[in-house]
């Protein structure tokens, strides 16, 4: 029994999951993470670095990776210990100009082998802003219905008010749980 086995067992027993938080710049990824973490969201600048936060929810340990602003994501897809269980794709619902870019990025990400099978949650963020598109329209704009390789859900939310963030996370946790921890 090597360490790899030990850690795999630990992941099972302690119900740890790994979630990657991605999206175009200025979509609000770090704001969401800070909100999750109960931190002050008044001062947020573009994420140059990367943040990992661990949170407990419904008996699961969620390790959320915010890797915004990175040129290459390859390094984050897997490492020695963990594989990625879920993707949270954050969309700026008020940014109509870049919805097409957003769609392209998302679809090119989903063909990545290392992310195969991961649960996909799309946060249609910034619903508090006037003129933001509702989830229904974002769903069409991103052509979500064509995605057959991943379980997905789109959830409108606002990182600033915190509205619907929990609903989205509830779905992510229950979807992962149904895939991985069926015996748990």
């Amino acid at each position: 029994m090597g360490l790899l086995t030990i850690l795999k067992k630990m992941k099972q027993k302690e119900k740890e999951v790994r979630i990657l938080m991605l999206g175009l710049d200025n979509a609000g990824k770090t704001t969401i993470l800070k909100k999750f973490n109960g931190e002050d969201i008044d001062t947020i600048s573009p994420t140059l670095g990367f943040n990992i936060k661990t949170l407990e929810h419904r008996g699961f340990k969620l390790n959320i990776w915010d890797v915004g602003g990175q040129k290459s994501l390859r390094s984050y897809w897997r490492n020695y210990f963990e594989s990625t269980d879920a993707l949270i794709w954050v969309v700026d619902s008020a940014d109509r100009m870049r919805l097409n870019d957003c769609k392209k990025e998302l679809h090119s990400l989903l063909v990545e082998e290392r992310l195969a099978g991961a649960t996909l949650l799309v946060f249609a963020n910034k619903q508090d802003l006037p003129g933001s598109l509702p989830a229904r329209e974002i769903r069409e704009a991103l052509d979500l219905d064509s995605i057959k390789t991943h379980h997905w859900l789109i959830q409108d939310c606002s990182a600033v008010t915190g509205e619907n963030l929990l609903n989205g996370m509830d779905w992510v946790v229950s979807d992962i749980a149904s895939r991985i921890f069926t015996m748990g």
């Binding site: 109960g38 008010t161 963030l165």
Partner: peptide
């Protein structure tokens, strides 16, 4: 997560 979001949600 629930406690942290508690204020808003």
């Amino acid at each position: 997560l629930v406690v942290n979001l508690g204020a808003g949600a």
